[in-house]
């Protein structure tokens, strides 16, 4: 029994093995991009939105409203980043129900990559908001002694994010596989339904935590104004 799709090599390109995680990620990317292109290809402001466009608007505005509730400084870039995290993880987890499809989020490499992207995004958003000096100062808050602890805290956030998502998705897939071998007719269905629910919840939690981390790194508007004046 394989616990991760990383070990399944689909093909090799220029000597680099391309495993199922990457291929399935491409599939999910193609699905998301294809659906978006199909719905938004003939988008005109003077035409009333149809049901598909309305569905996309509901999803995008739902994500945007969640970010605005959490973040002190909501921005379009934050929406692009966190929204893509949520849509990718949610779609990947929902495709758990497809037979023979291993969700990329069941791979620790994928979740680590996502956590790593959050780990990179946090200082980027922080520096954009506070400036490089202003952001680096936060590592020495409230005093210089806290610098190593803050660095450890920053990395442990990413690691916890990656492990949490991987553990949930992988455990759901493993439990479904075990139940399939023990009781192949009823329990796997129940576990898949539960997996859909937990998958959506994990996507939500991952996106929310990313938003919280990035928001904590960015200054609120009043603070940033004060900082600019003092500079």
């Amino acid at each position: 029994m394989e616990l991760t799709p990383d070990s399944t090599i689909v093909f090799e390109a220029w000597g680099i093995p391309v495993n199922a995680t990457i291929v399935n990620t491409w599939i999910i990317m193609a699905v998301l991009t294809g659906i978006s292109m199909l719905i938004t290809r003939k988008l005109r402001p003077d035409v009333p939105p149809n049901r598909w466009r309305t569905m996309l608007e509901v999803i995008v505005q739902g994500i945007q409203s969640q970010i605005e509730e959490i973040s002190r400084r909501p921005s379009r870039n934050l929406l692009y980043f966190v929204g893509t995290l949520f849509l990718f993880i949610a779609t990947s987890n929902l495709m758990l129900v497809m037979p023979g499809f291993d969700p990329p989020t069941a791979s620790l490499s994928t979740t680590a990559a996502l956590a790593f992207s959050v780990l990179i995004a946090v200082p980027l958003f922080g520096m954009t908001s506070r400036g490089v000096g202003g952001y680096l100062k936060t590592y020495m808050q409230p005093s210089v002694i806290m610098l190593p602890f803050n660095i450890i805290s920053e990395f442990s956030r990413g690691i916890s994010l990656a492990i949490r998502l991987y553990g949930n998705i992988m455990s759901g897939a493993v439990i479904a596989a075990i139940l399939l071998s023990v009781a192949p007719f009823f329990f796997p269905v129940v576990m898949d339904v539960l997996g859909l629910l937990t998958g959506l919840i994990q996507a939500y939690i991952f996106a929310i935590l990313a938003t919280v981390y990035i928001s904590s790194a960015t200054a609120d508007p009043s603070t940033s104004k004060t900082e600019k004046k003092t500079q």
């Binding site: 990383d6 680099i16 093995p17 391309v18 495993n19 995680t21 990457i22 990620t25 491409w26 990317m29 893509t84 995290l85 990718f88 990329p104 791979s107 490499s109 994928t110 680590a112 990559a113 996502l114 790593f116 992207s117």
Partner: peptide, 11 residues
């Protein structure tokens, strides 16, 4: 690590 890099780029 290759998968991580690929997934990071994919993302």
């Amino acid at each position: 690590w290759i998968t991580i890099a690929a997934q990071l780029i994919n993302f």
